[in-house]
Write a protein that binds this DNA or RNA. Structure first.
Lengths: 198, 198
DNA sequence: CTAATATTCGACCCATAGTTCGAATAATCG
DNA sequence: CGATTATTCGAACTATGGGTCGAATATTAG
């Protein structure tokens, strides 16, 4: 019969070790890209034996997914508050993007991975993976804000999807483009978005 | 002693076969991504035996580079005319982006590959590859147009690099973002760019 | 302490995929 | 027509890297 307190501690330790592995994995993914990341190197960087990784995760794919899920979940929790805050569509929309930029600045490698990896990897397999749900949820919320904003005259009278593309691209460019990873200020984002929205 | 006319024809045939291979390679790269593209499949799709590919190219890497060089070269030749046209910085800038969008609409798979592949693959090796030079040249020209435009009051008085990021992102979003690959009209691009530039 | 369980890990396994070989066929030359 | 050269290609080679095994060690239970 297992001791209860011990069980809890063990489970916490297990989670902590998974964290360490994910941390190492992120470093390698960031450095070498997705396919370029070798399990052996992830093991080396995280400080575990290769087989130990398979004691905590069932596959490389799972490590990848766990990383994305962790990131999207964290991001979503922050954004959810803003989304239900009850401000006007436009104000909410801008607040959300500013919040994302703020998050990016706190952990650039993670979010760079989050926003770049999917497109270079999105094959059928992870089409249904868990993290994708959060990504879709975010997309949907932003899209709805645009649609409502248009109705209320806060956004230009254009095809919502076009606005979404424009804003998404603009935001992505401001935050991620360029070799120089200088942190972008919230003011700059607001200014740019504002001028595009008229 | 080889016959001259025959030599010329043979060389043309050789080039034509290389074209066929590149065409097949593009189809596979587009479908399966870069690392997901297998030499065997490229061979099958282009209609040659696997070893024949190695008769025309020395490696998978070279096929990849040849494809990018071909694309960037084609694009650059079209853009060069506009760049030296002598219009005002802002007009030239917008014309160039519109031209790129026009090119994209004529061969979407190629340009999607051109604009997406590098970031998911850019490792040290192809940092110095030939196609990269054309990409850099384009970047440089656009950047100079922005700087000149700012001086002449045609662009907002902001950090040039920031404008570049914003415009690049916006453009990329309009042209490439979204599952729906509906062709974007030149008008829509001009309208968006215009509103961002004030 | 001893048995049972949890954790760790390097060595191995093996499927995949890039690359090369050698032979067969086609085209060109003299 | 031979002889030489160009082209084609499947089979074989090989390196890589994801995943597994079995033994060793640490931890917990009783």
């Amino acid at each position: 019969m297992p001791n209860t307190a011990t069980t809890i501690r063990k489970s916490a330790e297990r989670a902590a070790r998974q964290e360490l592995i994910l941390q190492g994995a992120l470093a390698v993914f960031k450095e070498k890209g997705l396919e370029g990341a070798k399990i052996d190197e992830i093991a080396r960087v995280s400080g575990f034996g290769k087989a130990t990784l398979y004691y905590y995760f069932t596959s490389k794919e799972e490590i990848f997914s766990a990383l994305l899920l962790h990131g999207w979940l964290t991001l979503w929790r922050e954004l959810e508050e803003i989304a239900v805050g009850g401000d006007s569509p436009r104000a909410t929309f801008i607040s959300m993007l500013k919040k994302i930029a703020e998050m990016v600045n706190t952990d650039r490698p993670l979010y760079e991975f989050l926003f770049q990896a999917p497109q270079s990897y999105t094959r059928e397999e992870n089409e249904r993976s868990e993290w994708k749900a959060y990504q879709n949820r975010l997309y949907k919320v932003l899209m709805e804000l645009i649609e409502q904003g248009i109705k209320q005259g806060e956004f230009p009278q254009m095809e919502p999807r076009l606005i979404m593309k424009a804003m998404g691209g603009l935001f992505h460019g401001l935050v991620f483009l360029g070799k120089d990873r200088d942190t972008i200020t919230e003011n700059e984002i607001e200014e740019m978005l504002g001028s595009l929205l008229g």
